[in-house]
Amino acid sequence: MDKTINNIGTLSGKVLLFGGVYSNLQALEALKAIAEQQNIAPENCICTGDVVGYCAQPEETVQLLKIWNAKSILGNVEIQLTEGEADCGCDFIEGSRCDGFSKLWYPYAQSKLSKNSIAYLATFPDHIYFNYANKKVTVVHGDYFNVSEFIFKSTDWNIKAKTIDATKSDVIVAGHCGLPFNHEQDNKLWLNPGVIGMPANDGSPQVWYAILEEINGEMKFTHHTLDYNYKLTNSLMKNGLLPEEYARTIVTGIWDNTEILPAIESGLQGFGINL
C-alpha cells in the first residue's frame, strides 16, 4: 500500500511534539492545557502515533484529540484498529510478556472505540512533512520503512540515516520506542519526543514531550516532563480487564520488563533521564 504523506507546509512559532498517548486521557488533558498556556496552535501540535494503547479510556482520548484538532500520524495501533486486525502490530516477540499483555489491552481498546473514532483514526497519514526554520522535518512512527521498527538512541546512525536519506530530511521526528532522546550527526537530527501515555522507564510517573522553537533563525528543541493526574489513570486501569503490571508502571515509572530494549537502554532502567 502506498504511503500517505501530509505536507503541512511551513510552520512558525512553537511546535509541540508528542507521541504514544496510549488511551491516557489524563495525560492528554494535561498536555492540551500546556499547549493552550503557551499559545501553541492546534495545527502546531503533532503526535507521532499510537493515540490508543494500554490505558483505560481509548474512546475519550480519541475524541479529545479530535476536539483539540491536533495532528497525528498513524501508529501501528491505528493501522491495526482501522483495518480490523486482531492484534496491535507492535512487533513484540511472540510469547513475550509484552505480547501477552497486548492480548488484554488491544481487544479492550477495540471493544471501546466507536465507529466515529475508528473513522477519525483512519484519516491520519502515514507521515507528516513540514518546513521549520529552514529545516525539512518528517514525522514517522517507527521509521520510514517500517511503522513497528524500534529505533533507540543506541541504534546505529547508519540505520537512522536510511530514513533521513529516503525522506530527504534534515530532521526526523519519531515515536514507537517509548523513550525520549535526540541523536545528532552529519548536521542531521533524529528526535524522539517520548510518549505521554506511559512513563519512560526512568523511575518517575512523569511523562515526556518536546517543543521546537525558532531562535535567531535557527531551530532549537527542548525536552520536557509532564505532570498529570497519574493516580486517576492508575485507578481507572484497575478494572479487571487491563494488565495490572501496566497500571503499576503508571505509578512507579518502571516498566514491567525490558524485552524490547537494547542493552544500553535496558541498563538505564530507573536511573532517570537527563535531556
Rank of each mutant, 00 (worst) to 15 (best):
G95V: 08
C45A: 14
Q57I: 00
I40E: 08
A30Q: 07
V51W: 01
V51N: 01
E36Y: 08
T82K: 11
L74E: 11
L28A: 02
I40Q: 04
Q57R: 13
G49R: 04
A56K: 02
V52L: 05
I34V: 14
L65R: 01
A86P: 05
E59R: 13
Y54L: 03
D91R: 14
E59Q: 15
I40F: 03
T48H: 01
E60K: 10
L28N: 07
L74R: 15
S72M: 14
N76L: 13
A56Y: 10
G53S: 06
E78S: 12
C90H: 13
T82W: 03
E36K: 11
N39V: 03
I67C: 09
K71L: 13
V52K: 01
E59F: 08
D91I: 00
G89T: 12
A70W: 15
A30P: 04
Q63D: 15
N69Q: 14
A33C: 03
E59I: 09
L81K: 08
A56Q: 02
G75T: 13
Q37S: 14
T48Q: 10
E60M: 02
A27E: 06
E85R: 15
C88M: 08
I67E: 15
I67N: 13
E36D: 07
L64C: 12
Q37F: 02
P58D: 02
L31S: 11
I79G: 01
I73F: 11
I34W: 00
A41H: 06
T61L: 07
C45H: 06
G75H: 14
D91S: 14
Q37D: 15
Q80K: 10
E59P: 07
A30F: 06
K66F: 09
D50A: 03
L64A: 12
V77T: 14
A35F: 00
G89N: 12
C55K: 04
I93P: 00
I34G: 00
I93L: 07
V51A: 03
Q38I: 00
Q37C: 09
T82N: 09
A30R: 02
L65Y: 02
N69R: 15
E60Q: 12
Q57P: 00
P58Q: 05
F92L: 02
N76G: 13
T82F: 02
L65W: 01
I73E: 09
V52D: 03
D91C: 10
C88I: 08
T61H: 09
W68C: 05
Q38P: 00
C88D: 15
L28E: 06
N44H: 05
V77M: 12
L28T: 06
V52H: 04
A86C: 05
G53E: 05
